[in-house]
Nucleic acid binder design. Sequence first.
DNA 1: TTGTAGGCGTTATCAT
DNA 2: ATGATAACGCCTACAA
Lengths: 338, 338
Amino acid sequence: MRQVTMGDVAKKCKLSVATVSRVYTDPEKVSPKNREKVYKAIQELNYQPNALARNLRKLQTNSILVIIPNIMNTFFSYILCAIQKVAFNSGYKVLLGDTDSSPEMEAKYLYYLQQKLVDGVILLYPRSNPEEIQKIAGEYPVVIVGQQAPESSIPFVINSNFLSSQTATEHMIKLGHRRIAHFSGRLSQPVSRERQKGFVFAMEANGLDVDKSLVCEGDFYFDSGHALALKLLSSAQPPSALVAASDEMAIGAIKAARKLGVRVPEDFAIIGFDDIKMASICEPALTTMAQPKEELARLSTEMLLSYIKGEPPHQNCVVLNDQLIIRESCGWALLNND
Amino acid sequence: MRQVTMGDVAKKCKLSVATVSRVYTDPEKVSPKNREKVYKAIQELNYQPNALARNLRKLQTNSILVIIPNIMNTFFSYILCAIQKVAFNSGYKVLLGDTDSSPEMEAKYLYYLQQKLVDGVILLYPRSNPEEIQKIAGEYPVVIVGQQAPESSIPFVINSNFLSSQTATEHMIKLGHRRIAHFSGRLSQPVSRERQKGFVFAMEANGLDVDKSLVCEGDFYFDSGHALALKLLSSAQPPSALVAASDEMAIGAIKAARKLGVRVPEDFAIIGFDDIKMASICEPALTTMAQPKEELARLSTEMLLSYIKGEPPHQNCVVLNDQLIIRESCGWALLNND
DNA sequence: TTGTAGGCGTTATCAT
DNA sequence: ATGATAACGCCTACAA
């Protein structure tokens, strides 16, 4: 069954394809009478314009690609969800590019731009090297979320990693902790280094020793937090508190503590990062630095869309502040309950 | 800056566009010497074929749309992730259609097919009415996951809801429970009705009364489970066990119990459905009916792709079995620990 | 093995 | 306000 085309509609109402086309692109320009005729024919033939032809003609797809390390993490899926909402409301479709944290996948997806498969890309927490990214982002609309593009003019939106990590650490120090551990993500990622630096800075600024054996490299995922905590808690001199660079690792640590009979927060206070859904639900509820997910998503999408449309951007680089959310795992309530 | 086209490549190596095109579609058909020339020119010009033009010419996009109620739920995001992997390996791109559980959104997304924006659709747990779906699915490749398409020939993949709900319920009965509650999803959805029926059937088959006040309609989400459990547990005759039709509701119930000082599983045994990530992490770990997520995703994608390619399908309707995963929340260990 | 040329379904320009 | 027509960039008979 051949597809219904504009030609068919035109023939049906004895008008030209140009007029039919105008009904879609600029209805004002066609007389009310003819407009009606066209609408009727469209209805009767159940016609829908072929997006492929339109895309080719206009050399654009009205869709964007979101490159994302792992949709299973609710932090990412939340952002993805928010991006899709903003994009949808602006008439843009969202292609999904889950990289499973692989730089190679990330690069493959970036090439969708060159193939004209999408009009722009939102790149969440990139893993591939800056040159690779710069090569594409220099020519096509790309906005990076969660990482500052060093020495390049790629627009980005990030949260205040250094500062927030510092805040989280100082929260623990204020609660009286001296031996504090830090679990970072892979240090190959700038985010991880930023958060680790914030931790070290806060410790030193408060005159505390940074025991190197307590500054551990994880990978942001649950399992790494679990394994690291098991090791530390069964060592000779276990820490009394943990600043984790992700909620997943923090929750992994909670589970590890429980397995060893270590009480959280009494014997081991924990603070996470991200505020994923599980953070408020797990037991004890996780104290964490909440990233402004909604804002991150909205701003990056708006920036990308105006970039695509060639509008002058209001802002190219945005740094958003995180928010400390005090729940149970840090032991704040133990001291402040009256 | 004009985009590089096949014409440019052709000119560069003094061959025709046809030859260049063949290098992509059927390299065997062009002489090794010329092939090299073309490769070189492609390299030098940094040429990438324009997917838009190719799509129009071939009237296909090599992409599929996944319509999904809510990516924030790890059950769905897991399936989405698995679908994307299978699709990617077959050269297909994945468009994301998060409906936020709205039938209207679902319908809008279905029309992407008519607009030729995608070659096929995987429809997860549809919420819109069957006629609406049938209208599109009758003409274009659609595979439904999680719901049987009644009186229509739309291919589908589901799990054994009735049977699994029965199994879950009987598990509770075997553990000695008599007053058992059931939380369903919205009864407008067939899945919900199936699971509820499975519960009722198991109760009656075992000669137990079904107290209507214990058979509650929720909406699959955390909050509904929380609210319902609060109500039931503070009633005059609280149940001693709960069969929840989703893990989210089950975990909501766990939190409610904790809030009221009711011990899980000692005073209130709970079993969930889905096996989301949080199920193994929450406290106590959730006993649940695990859906074969991987299989659901793989089979539906394979079915859709062969449907798109016009291959005769191996199977049109698949029913997969769930698996009972015993953890802590049902209290099995209390009886069987020796 | 290679080249020529028509067409995929729209949109946009230019006449009328 | 409307119509004829030339692109958009690629693929694929068909001819050479």
